[in-house]
Amino acid sequence: MSQIFHHSTNTFSRLSIFGGIFILAFLVWAWAELNASDYATRAKVPVEQPVPFSHEHHVGGLGIDCRYCHTSVENSSFAGIPPTKICMNCHSQIWNTSAMLEPVRTSFRSDESIRWIRVHDLPDYVYFNHSIHVAKGIGCTSCHGPINKMPLTWQQASLQMAWCLECHRHPERFVRPRSEVFNVTYQPPANQEELGRKLVREYKIQSLTSCSTCHR
């Protein structure tokens, strides 16, 4: 009985064994990349808001401190979205006839909330707390990115667990002096690791990586 397949098809069969492994590996890799991509996490996509509020103007241009509007960031899990009254502190006098700000004035007159769109929407099974991060020397821009350069606000980080753990495992790479937490132009010094280790000791920062730290 003669052979069904020609001798040269052996090469094909070897190739397909290798190919099976590599194609599978490639697919897994591609899936992981796609899952962590800005497209999937919606990072770095400016979010349309009822009023096109610019952090670039208010923070970068005018130098207003984060806490002027986000008043509860030091005491609460939630940084606080300013009530319309805080907008009106200045905008009752400045740009007070601008059409762009009409929703703000309407809200102030009618006592109805402006329906801002949440930019950082963590899954509901994650319990993030702003106050502890701020108190332990994690700067606003470490997570929120160059907020002073955002004409419309976007989410800078992926907010995926791998991203959280990056810092929870190695806080010394990100911690900064408490006095610099709200400094939006802070650049880590060349000796960050050394300074970081010192601050981790000084601020008694624990590297918390157990599940129940965030998932309760």
Binding site: L62, G63, I64, D65, R67, Y68, C90, Q93, I94
Partner: peptide, 25 residues
């Protein structure tokens, strides 16, 4: 003071903060 007052009153309290320079009384 530096967070809440200085935008208008200025860091020295002279009333020449950034928001005043942008038109607030």
């Amino acid at each position: 003071f530096n967070v809440y007052c200085s935008p208008c009153h200025g860091r020295l309290g002279n009333g020449l903060g950034m928001i005043v320079r942008r038109g607030l009384k």
